[in-house]
Simulated assay, not measured.
Amino acid sequence: MKTTILGILFLFLSSSLAFSQDESTKQEIIELAKTKWQWMADKEADKLAELFDDKSVFVHMGGAWGKEREVNIIRSGGIWYKKADIHEVSVEIIDNTAILLNRITLVAEVGGNEVVNPFMVTEVYVKKDGVWKMGSLSFTKLNTPGGQ
């Protein structure tokens, strides 16, 4: 009987600890994503280059490409991510991978023209050597009334 009770108590404490660590990791990813949006607004290409994995991919309304092109576009101002208003955020953790969904309104300057678009943005992060690296950033334009 004592063994059964101790086993159940251990299981409960283990699952509580795992839940706590999972929530902590989710919050860490949310903060990293917010920081990334600020770096994009500030055109901090070097910081973004460090965050983006060498094999990372980026999907935009105008196409898809890798890390080098994305960093160069940000550095040159080809796309200036001026402001991302985040309306909703969710994170799922699968082993060493985090998948973040942001529903945003993005104010950007593209080719010298300011544009405002509602997007669902998918961000994939992979933990490598104890550090989160972005593996993918994908924009899906939303067609909802008012973009909200």
Rank of each mutant, 00 (worst) to 15 (best):
S90L: 11
L11M: 08
S90F: 09
D42W: 03
K133T: 11
F58W: 06
H60V: 02
T35K: 14
T97E: 09
A18Q: 09
G111M: 05
I104H: 00
M120W: 10
K36V: 09
K128S: 11
E88Y: 14
N117P: 00
S136G: 14
M120I: 14
V71I: 03
L13P: 03
D85Q: 11
P118D: 07
E88F: 14
V116M: 11
N117S: 08
I29F: 05
D42G: 03
K67F: 00
V59A: 13
I104L: 04
T97Y: 12
R69S: 04
D95Y: 06
K47T: 03
P118R: 05
V116R: 15
L100R: 03
K26S: 04
S76W: 00
V107I: 11
M40D: 04
D42I: 01
A64W: 05
V121Y: 02
S76D: 07
N96S: 12
M134H: 05
V131I: 13
V91Y: 10
V59T: 15
A108G: 08
F10L: 11
D22M: 15
E109L: 09
G135L: 10
E28N: 09
D53N: 09
I99M: 10
I29T: 08
K26V: 03
D22L: 15
A64F: 06
G112R: 00
G62C: 03
V126F: 10
E50N: 07
S56L: 00
R103Y: 06
K141R: 12
E68L: 06
T3L: 14
G63F: 01
I99P: 08
I5K: 14
S90A: 15
K82A: 09
K141P: 08
L13R: 02
M40H: 09
Q21R: 15
W37N: 14
